[in-house]
Amino acid sequence: MDITQILFWFLSILAVFGALMMVTSKNPVYSVLWLIVVFFAISGHYILLNAQFLAVVNIIVYAGAIMVLFLFVIMLMNLNAETEPQKNKWLKIAGVIAGGSLMLVFIAALRHSNELIKTQVSMGGEAGLIKTLGKTLFTDYVLPFEISSVLFLSAMVGAVVIGKKGD
């Protein structure tokens, strides 16, 4: 078992455990913190897959910006374990069974895909470096890049209009 495999298993267990803790935590602040753990584990996976730029962007955008936004909103509303809405125990069990059944269907569908199993994913290649990605982004994909700035502008305007007081 070499270092890549050890890292893969460590990051996978961390991601799944963090996701489970995120779903089961009563306090929403703890949920946010566990989700940040999951995002860091996924960033580690990106590094293992040689997508260094995506790993850094994932940490900056998700763990840095989006989760801080979530934390701000939760603290603004003063949510904690006491204000957590309660619900029927049977509905909870039904939800878990539905999610587990979805996982079962996916795994059953992918179990006999022999062609996929033979393919190995390993290190190597420089596709994930910022130089390569930036060159492609600003030559072949410059139009989607510019359109995404319009998307951001509209999202910003939308957030301000929705969040505005009174009307």
Binding site: A15, A19, V23, L91, K92, M103, F106
Partner: peptide
């Protein structure tokens, strides 16, 4: 991870 997300949305 996806199934945990689905179960979370449902529960």
């Amino acid at each position: 991870l996806f199934s945990i997300g689905v179960a979370g949305v449902l529960t």
